[in-house]
Design a protein around this nucleic acid. Structure first.
Lengths: 224, 224
DNA sequence: ACCTGAACACCGTTCAAGT
DNA sequence: ACCTGAACACCGTTCAAGT
C-alpha cells in the first residue's frame, strides 16, 4: 500500500491544497457524517495536511462553509425557468432548493445573510430565476421580492423537515393546549410526510397569492 | 459599596441560582451584547457564580437557549385571535413573531426543530393560534399546516431582515448576472426597508392563497 | 508561496471536595 | 442539594521556522 506522503517541513514542490480540493473534502465530510463533524481538524486530516495549512487557502471556517454553500447552490434545479410558466418554474425551483437544504440546515444561517458578491454560483442561480420571472412578464420591481419570499419559505421549511417526528407532541403538557394537541395528533395519524405537505400547501398558497397580486398590478392578468 | 458575596466552598444556605434567574440573565446578556457573547462563562460571571454551578440547573448551553426561546415566545402577540378575522390575526401574529426573531436569529435553528414538549410558553402560543383558526372555521386538518407554513416564512424573513444591506450587491461579479444586478440595484434605490416589504408581500400572498385554498375545500367560502 | 509543528486563547462539560 | 475550583477534551486561529 502507498505510504502517506509524510511531507517534510518546507514548501512542497507543487501545492497540495486548493480552494476546490478543500470544498470537495468538506462536502464529502458532511455527506458521510454531519456538520458536527466538520472541524478544521477533521478537514485537514481528510486532506492529509496539518490544520494550519488550510489557512493558506481559506480565511476561516466560515469561509469553508461559504465554499460548500456555493457548490451546493450550483446543483439546485433552475431549469424550469427556461421553458415552463413562471409559477411552475418557481415550484420546481423551490422544491429542489428545499430538498437540498434539508440535509444542510447548518448552512442556512450563513446562506441567508451572505452577500451574493461572495458566492458566484449562488448569484448565477438568482440570475436564472430573475431572468425567467422578468421574461414571463412579472413586474420588475417585484422580482427580487418574490425570490426573497420564496427563499424565506424554503429555509423555514427545510428546518421543519429536519425536525424530529414528535416535534408537535406536547407530552405531559397536553392539558395546556387541548386544541393544538388534538389537531397535531390527528395530523400525525395521516400517512406520508407531513412537513412536505405543509410546505406544498404553503408554496401553493404563496404562488397563487403572488399571481393574484401581480395580476392586479398590471393591466392584463399574468396568467393565461 | 457592597462586597461581592464571595461564597465559601460548600453549599449555600439558600440556593443562589434557579432556571428563572439563569433565563433572565441570559436574555439580559444577549440584549446588551449579542449571541457571540453568550457563553457559559459570561453567564456565570453575570450571575456571580462559578461556571460549573450552572450545571446544577441546566443540562447544557442548548438548554439555556431553550429557556430564552420559551421566554421570548411568551411575548409574541397572539391577541388578534381573540377578536379579529383569522387572516388579520395571522398577519399580526406573523409580524410580531418576525420582529422578535430578527434580533434572535441565533435561536431559529433551535426553535425550528424543538419539540413543543420542552417549551410550555411556545406550546401555549400555538394553542392560541390553533384555537383561533379553528374557531374562525378553518378546516381542522389544515390548521397545523397553516401554522407551520407561516412560521417557515417568518423564520426565513427574520434571517433576511438581519442580513447586511448590500446582500444583493454583486460587486465585481455583476457581469455574471445582468438581470439580477439591474433589478437588485433598482430595488436598493427604493426608500424604506426592502426586507420588510418583501416579507409583507409574501405574507399577503400566502394568506390570500390560503384563503383561496380553504374556501375551495369547504362548501361555503371562509371569507365573508 | 505554502507547508509543519507548537502555541494561544478560548469553549462546553465533568467531577471530587466541601458544607 | 448546591456550591467551588481544578481538570479534560476539545475548538478555531496565529505564527515562527523551514524549503
Amino acid at each position: 500500500m502507498p505510504t502517506p506522503p509524510r511531507r517534510g517541513r518546507g514548501r512542497p514542490a507543487a501545492p497540495v491544497l486548493s480552494r476546490e480540493r478543500i470544498a470537495e473534502a468538506a462536502i464529502g465530510l458532511v455527506e458521510e457524517k454531519d456538520y458536527r463533524h466538520l472541524t478544521m481538524s477533521s478537514l485537514s486530516k481528510r486532506l492529509g495536511v496539518s490544520t494550519s495549512a488550510l489557512y493558506n487557502h481559506v480565511a476561516s471556517k466560515r469561509d469553508v462553509m461559504v465554499l460548500i454553500q456555493d457548490r451546493l447552490n450550483a446543483e439546485i434545479d433552475c431549469s424550469g425557468f427556461d421553458a415552463a410558466p413562471w409559477d411552475e418554474a418557481l415550484r420546481l425551483w423551490a422544491r429542489s432548493y428545499r430538498r437540498c437544504y434539508i440535509r444542510h440546515t447548518a448552512l442556512i444561517p450563513i446562506m441567508a445573510v451572505l452577500p451574493v458578491a461572495d458566492s458566484p454560483e449562488t448569484l448565477q442561480m438568482y440570475e436564472r430565476v430573475a431572468h425567467g420571472l422578468e421574461q414571463a412578464g412579472l413586474d420588475g420591481a417585484a422580482v427580487v421580492d418574490v425570490i426573497v419570499g420564496v427563499e424565506a419559505l424554503v429555509f423555514g421549511a427545510a428546518y421543519d423537515a429536519s425536525a424530529p417526528a414528535d416535534i408537535f407532541d406536547p407530552g405531559s403538557l397536553a392539558e395546556l393546549a387541548p386544541t393544538f394537541t388534538r389537531l397535531a395528533a390527528a395530523r400525525a395519524e395521516e400517512p406520508g410526510d407531513s412537513a412536505e405537505r405543509a410546505f406544498e400547501r404553503a408554496l401553493e398558497a404563496l404562488i397563487r397569492g403572488l399571481d393574484d397580486q401581480l395580476s392586479a398590478e398590471v393591466t392584463g392578468p399574468v396568467r393565461a
